[in-house]
């Protein structure tokens, strides 16, 4: 059971949140001119790293705000939490393991 620090409400149990998958997926623009293959990459392909993963979560049963976290997919340690309007933090990858 994760404990997640919502940037607006503070630390709460995982079951107040929902995970929205990988963060920082840029929509290729202008969409009309994107090739079939690149569009499929954007729609269907996601990273599945053993290590750091940047992902979106929503505090659905709280303030309903979306935010990003950096999670280590092996230890599940959450190394950073940041708002959507903040730049992704520089996390020390070595330390994370």
């Amino acid at each position: 059971m994760f404990r997640i620090s919502c940037p607006f409400c503070g630390e709460r149990d995982e079951n107040e949140f929902v995970c929205g998958g990988q963060a920082h997926i840029a929509r290729p623009e202008p969409a009309e001119q994107v090739s079939e293959r690149d569009w499929a990459e954007y729609l269907f392909f996601r990273d599945n790293p053993k290590g750091l993963h940047f992902e979106r979560w929503q505090h659905r049963y709280g303030c309903r705000q979306w935010f990003n976290i950096v999670r280590h997919t092996v230890s599940h340690e959450i190394l950073a939490v940041y708002r959507l309007d903040e730049a992704p933090p520089d996390v020390d990858r070595e330390e994370a393991v």
């Binding site: 929205g20 309903r64 979306w66």
Partner: peptide, 13 residues
């Protein structure tokens, strides 16, 4: 509603 919030907060702030 959750989907619309995700769009407004994340994609079209």
């Amino acid at each position: 509603h959750a989907w619309m919030e995700a769009l407004l907060q994340g994609d079209w702030p």
